[in-house]
Write a protein that binds this DNA or RNA. Structure first.
Ligand SMILES: [Mn+2]
Ligand SMILES: [Mn+2]
Ligand SMILES: [Zn+2]
Ligand SMILES: [Zn+2]
Lengths: 143, 143
DNA sequence: ATGATAAAATAGAATTATTCTAAGTTAATA
DNA sequence: TATTAACTTAGAATAATTCTATTTTATCAT
């Protein structure tokens, strides 16, 4: 069962309607590792569904988030990125071009809180933002 | 030499003017561990400088960032928070009330990239977002 | 001290990301 | 095939941030 099939059954379980727009968004997200913004998805959708609205994109992304089928990635200060891979993982962002890569390593063992902070906060999760330069941006003489 | 004095000399070194508004913003930031938003600072400034504008707050924050005297914290998906403490450190955000705490631990030793990602990205930095519940929010029967 | 001037402050307009609203459309069900 | 709650849509609204044009001022050289 792939991402889309999985979500479709979840959608049905939640009593959500399966509309062409939603299916197109799911198709766009399925296996997508580019961490698209809402606009990226909107632009992609327009190709097959020219009358689709931004509201539908945002509404669907919110539904998917609420179902736990989509993550919001908060690494870019300018806009939200979305990630259909809900396996816990971390990200690295190229500080030059903004491209985002996945890091499937569990650092939890090392990521413990100092005593004073542990007394103040009950820890529920962690996410590492890595910063770097992607291969493309390191290559000299770029266009 | 405290934060403000330090920044004042840096401002002079950069040829920036020292205006009452800038001094007030520096005073507001000095030793501030609340990770305020631009609006938080604006509201605070209004008390002593009723005619101050948002543009001045943003301009000054940008100047401070450019001078390396201020960090932008990207842990809240809804707005930017600012931090006068430029010592490398990490943050924990209460997922209920949004309060942000500091974590002065260097996890770099443990935060290494897997081979494939290391081949694609040249690593320049890291920041850990911790999620949790603050004491206040854990206390039952809150107001 | 005074004047010249580049830099900064201001009000408000503009922009951008996101959310809301009201009206028309449709997937799901019977 | 009809019913209807849920969905889609266009566009308005909101909120964070940036820009613009104008006025003001800190600094520096007289
Ligand atoms: Mn990812
Ligand atoms: Mn901090
Ligand atoms: Zn890059
Ligand atoms: Zn809290």
């Amino acid at each position: 069962m792939n991402y889309t099939e999985n979500i479709i059954s979840k959608y049905r379980a939640h009593g959500f309607k399966l509309t062409p727009q939603r299916l197109a968004i799911l198709k766009c997200l399925d296996g997508n590792t580019s961490h698209p913004t809402a606009e990226d998805i909107y632009i992609e959708l327009k190709k097959t569904h020219p009358t689709v609205s931004f509201a539908t994109v945002y509404n669907t992304l919110t539904s998917l988030k609420d179902m736990g089928a989509l993550l919001e990635v908060t690494i870019d200060p300018d806009r939200k990125h979305f990630d259909p891979n809900t396996t816990p993982h971390h990200h690295i962002i190229c500080t030059k071009c903004g491209s985002i890569g996945d890091i499937f390593v569990d650092y939890s063992q090392a990521l413990t809180l100092p005593e004073d902070v542990g007394a103040e906060f009950f820890l529920t999760g962690n996410h590492v933002d890595f910063y770097g330069l992607c291969k493309r941006c390191r290559t000299k003489g770029q266009v």
